[in-house]
Write a protein that binds this DNA or RNA. Structure first.
Length: 930
RNA sequence: GCGCGCUUAGCUCAGUGGUAGAGCAUUACCUUCACACGGUAGGGGUCGCAGGUUCGAAACCUGCAGCGCGCACCA
């Protein structure tokens, strides 16, 4: 900082220090360290994603926690990495392929397509990583992981086989949430219910055995009529009960002969006779509830919708080939033509949408892999019993509710990009052959802990992670399951699969369980809950010797970043600012500080670029405050001489002590906006606004010893302040730490190499306070002095004096006033002179203010607008009067005076006295004006 | 339907029983030798509504309204 620029220029500072930290290995965690551990695993962003404001919020918090922990003397591991993001990445590459080569992935073939995805990953995979570096994230990049790394992949396979072996993973034909666009099954969590404006259609059907009887059926999906295999009524419904066992004539497909259109009327309790007409069409192949009814009544299934959402031949000639929504319109027309349509009225209902593709999902019967969640009781208990803490804790209830009503997890996806299911099968011509095959392989694999074999009829399946076995199976005609696993089936292993599991590595020993997890509440089920279950299931092994296998001790849920209008950030709305643009414009520290300042615990954050501007302004203020110190010259001052401390010095030291306490407490409670607010207030409103200004009284003077001591106080305060700011503002604080010389001659653990290793400031202890005479009374004394200054400045306004104009004040002290204090007051008042005169007799019309320290006059005969000043003082007096009445009323109430704690009573009495005193002085001032 | 959150200055938000706060915006004045990304002084709120508890409620309790979110759903 030999040449200090007038404004802080982050661009010239940030890259320099980030490179320095990397080169010095400052972020690298040492599992052999004897320091206590602190660890976080990053929520891995999509490998092909771009940094958005949500990442900024999330990762700034993690960085603050990590940097604070380092300053607390912890061995810190912040483990970074990326997620392969199955659907998102595959769709991205498919689009690119379509655009560049006009080819579909099927035209390319699975193997070739996967090569392209890997190429894409190599090309774009480090974009988001570099963006995190720009933000200043202190991740241990030597340990960066990707969920498709070979070692990670092996963990996923191992976990699959273990759960398969335990019988928790099974394959079955079930109704699943099918996305017709991505053409894959989805888990329940990936379905988003959205209200839709559609129609409720009422159509009539004839009862076959009683041609005069017609039933009216209500439906929102007439296109599925060809798939109906029954109509259901409630057996307790007197209107229809007698019809159970009879049949109706299904109106579609119209071309079928009458006998093929007959479907039974069944009785089922599921039917709500209050709703619709009380008659329910049952489409077991295309509705979850209907499937259950179908199972209960052994109804046949007729599939009429294809995987891509179009209708098939069974839907009838008129519908076949049409998209499901087009088919709905045509079905309505067909019913109308038959005279079966009774009415259609607008109707709002909730429809499940594919979160990824944003199209209505299609309940579809298909063969999928499911997981019965493991370790559910332990996972519930650790949060319920408070061993794992959620911040804010209300999410614990949401978590518990989900675990209580948990359904099996559909883990297979009909995609190519992802972890392929490690199961090989072969189908024999009959069961006997299959049985023989099963027995042969069961014998072969009996000593293998890495394989598991099952037989289902004439199908034999082997789940295995042994490459040799896999190869043999491939060679002898076994087919590997074509599906891949849900991306979250790899993410849920993140806290330990990134640390060398299944080996009991020194990293796991040192850093697992992790300390904090920082993530968004939107993935509490997707990720957080599942990681907890995986932790208990896979880290509970005795070999890890953990008292508790939970993957983290605290979960901090951030808010969701919205725009100024409260809308979610989205690409389509274009309301999502590019953090890198903001960093280029304002600096990474500014973005971090602004974001933290406006992100209270547990609330959504309405992002406004003004916040970043505020961050920049703050950095500039910090910069210039240090610049001021440098301009006073001299080396870093060491020892503070206690006998030379002024009341202002003691005041700022005591304020610093409060700030250290407040910031530390706020951080311990994860209240980042409170921490920044406390820092802001201390540094701007206390240090800069008052202390620095007061110091000028010394610096403009001639006492070199006093000057040196003031510099020592400044250096002490700044060296503490910069450290308090470091977790929030890593770049500028490192620059200033070195530039101000605070790193010079320091051992590494005191910040000699980098402020990252400087100790976090501790509140002052009694010895320290005693030695420097830091009695709380100095806060009060000095506050009073500054109050006097504020009042004195008010007088200028009364005199309508230009800010630049120097005027003379007269002070009539009520007690002894030191020359230093007189000088400070003079300076802060921007006065030409301050005449201290105990016998001063002001001429009539002299504006005055009175404080505990004494009376201050601004003698400006003839220059004052007496009338205006009178109005001002009269208003002032009225205000004070009102306050007095308020307090007097309280004190007149015997209920108050008898029941209130003595301290509160005393406080009220004192307040009354103060107001009365003020009133006296205001009235005197008024009288003095004549 | 069940659950959760929010409602305080024009805006965004702090404030868990004792004198209503911050930042931004706004008004006036000021380029004074750290900083105009700055300084000084000001204006602006019956704390969503109605009850209750209490000597005292923005805060605690009950009810209501509005906004937002999550879960579950009836065709």
């Amino acid at each position: 900082m030999s040449e200090i620029s007038k404004a802080y220029e982050p661009q010239s500072v940030e890259d320099k220090w980030y490179d320095f930290w990397l080169k010095q290995g400052c972020f690298t965690a040492d599992p052999k360290s004897t320091k206590p551990p602190y660890s976080i695993v990053i929520p891995p962003p999509n490998v092909t994603g771009m940094l958005h404001m949500g990442h900024v919020l999330n990762n700034t918090i993690q960085d603050i926690l990590s940097r604070k922990a380092r300053m607390d003397g912890k061995e810190v591991l912040w483990l970074p990495g990326t997620d392969h993001a199955g659907i998102a990445t595959q769709v991205m590459v498919e689009k690119h392929l379509k655009k560049e080569e006009k080819k579909s992935r099927h035209e390319l073939g699975r193997e070739e397509f996967l090569k392209r995805v890997w190429l894409w990953k190599e090309k774009h995979g480090d974009i988001i990583i570099n963006q995190l570096k720009k933000l200043g994230c202190s991740c241990d990049w030597t340990r960066e992981r990707f969920t498709m790394d070979p070692e990670y992949s092996r963990c996923v396979q191992k976990v699959f086989v273990e759960l398969y072996k335990k019988g928790l993973i099974y394959r079955g034909k079930r109704m699943v949430n099918w996305c017709p666009v991505s053409q894959t099954a989805l888990s329940d969590e990936e379905v988003e219910m959205k209200p839709q404006n559609g129609f409720m259609y009422h159509f009539k059907v004839q009862v076959a055995e009683a041609p005069d009887t017609w039933l009216t059926i209500a439906t929102t999906r007439p296109e599925t009529i060809p798939g109906d295999t029954a109509v259901a009524v409630n057996p307790k419904d007197p209107r229809y009960a007698q019809l159970i066992g009879k049949h109706i004539v299904r109106p579609l497909p119209a071309e079928l002969p009458r006998e093929q259109k007959l479907i039974p009327i069944i009785g089922d309790e599921h039917v709500d006779f209050e709703f619709g007409t009380g008659v329910l069409k049952v489409t077991p192949a295309h509705d979850k509830a209907d499937f259950d009814i179908g199972t209960r009544h052994k109804l046949p299934l007729i599939e009429v919708i294809n995987a891509d959402g179009s209708m098939n031949a069974l839907a009838g000639a008129s519908l076949a080939g049409l998209d499901r929504f087009k088919a709905r319109k045509v079905a309505v027309e067909l019913l109308a033509e038959q005279g079966a349509m009774i009415e259609s009225k607008p109707y709002e209902n909730n429809v499940g949408f594919s979160q990824r593709a944003d199209v209505p999902i299609e309940p579809r019967l298909s063969e999928q892999w499911f997981l019965k969640y493991p370790a559910v009781p332990q996972s519930k208990a650790c949060v319920a019993e408070g061993r794992m803490k959620f911040h804010p804790d209300r999410w614990a209830k949401v978590y518990d509710h989900w675990l209580t009503n948990i359904q099996d997890w559909c883990i297979s996806r009909q995609l190519w990009w992802g972890h392929r299911i490690p199961v090989w099968s072969v189908t024999d011509s009959d069961e006997a052959k299959a049985k023989a095959r099963f027995e042969h392989w069961a014998e072969q694999l009996k000593s293998s802990s890495e394989s598991s074999i099952r037989r289902n009829g004439n199908v034999v399946s082997i789940a295995t992670i042994t490459p040799g076995v896999q190869h043999t199976l491939e060679m002898s005609g076994w087919q590997q399951d074509p599906d891949v696993l849900d991306t979250w089936f790899s993410s849920w292993l993140w806290p330990f699969a990134t640390m060398g599991w299944p080996e009991n590595t020194e990293t796991l020993t040192k850093f697992y369980p992790t300390t904090d997890l920082v993530t968004g509440p939107d993935i509490i089920f997707f990720w957080v809950a599942r990681m907890i279950m995986a932790g208990y299931e896979f880290m509970g092994d005795v070999k890890f010797a953990l008292p508790d296998a939970m993957p983290f001790q605290n979960v901090y849920f951030t808010g969701i970043i919205r725009d100024k209008q409260g809308r979610k950030m989205s690409k389509t709305l274009g309301n999502s600012p590019d953090p890198l643009v903001l960093i280029a414009q304002y600096g990474a520290d500014a973005l971090r500080f602004g974001t933290m300042r406006s992100a209270p615990l547990g609330q959504d954050v309405l992002f406004d670029e003004k916040d970043v501007e505020l961050g920049r302004n703050f950095c500039n203020k910090l910069w210039n405050a240090c610049r001021f110190r440098q301009m006073q010259g001299g080396e870093v001052q060491g020892e503070i001489e206690r006998t030379l401390l002024t009341p202002d010095d003691k005041w700022i030291l005591l304020k610093l002590d409060s700030a250290i306490r407040e910031v530390t407490v706020a951080l311990n409670e994860y209240k980042f906006s409170e921490a920044t607010a406390a820092l802001y207030k201390f540094f701007w409103s206390e240090y800069c606004d008052w202390y620095v200004e007061a110091c000028k009284a010394v610096f403009f003077g001639t006492d070199a010893t006093q000057k040196a001591n003031t510099l020592a106080v400044i250096d002490f305060v700044l060296s503490h302040t910069i450290r308090l700011f470091h977790p929030f503002l890593p770049f500028i604080t490192e620059e200033l730490w070195h530039g101000m010389g605070f790193a010079t001659d320091m051992p590494n653990n005191q910040g000699g190499k980098t402020i990252m290793n400087a100790p976090w400031p501790l509140p002052f202890d009694d010895d320290f306070k005693g030695h420097y005479g830091l009695d709380d009374c100095y806060v009060e004394i000095t506050d009073t002095k500054y109050e006097l200054v504020r009042n004195g400045r008010d007088l200028r306004r009364a005199g309508n004096i230009q800010a630049a104009k120097k005027v003379k004040y007269v002070f009539k002290p009520a007690q002894h006033l030191t020359p230093h204090d007189a000088e400070v007051i003079k300076l802060l008042l921007n006065a030409e002179a301050l005449e201290v005169n105990a016998d001063y007799q002001p001429p009539k019309g002299t504006p005055t203010v009175n404080t505990k320290l004494g009376e201050l006059f601004l003698p400006l005969e003839g220059l004052i607008d007496v009338a205006a000043e009178k109005i001002r003082l009269t208003k002032e007096a009225e205000k004070i009067q009102a306050e007095i009445v308020k307090v007097e009323q309280k004190l007149a109430n015997p209920n108050f005076t008898t029941k209130v704690p003595p301290a509160v009573l005393a406080e009220h009495e004192q307040r009354l006295a103060e107001w009365k005193n003020k009133l006296t002085h205001t009235q005197a001032s008024l009288a003095a004006l004549g």
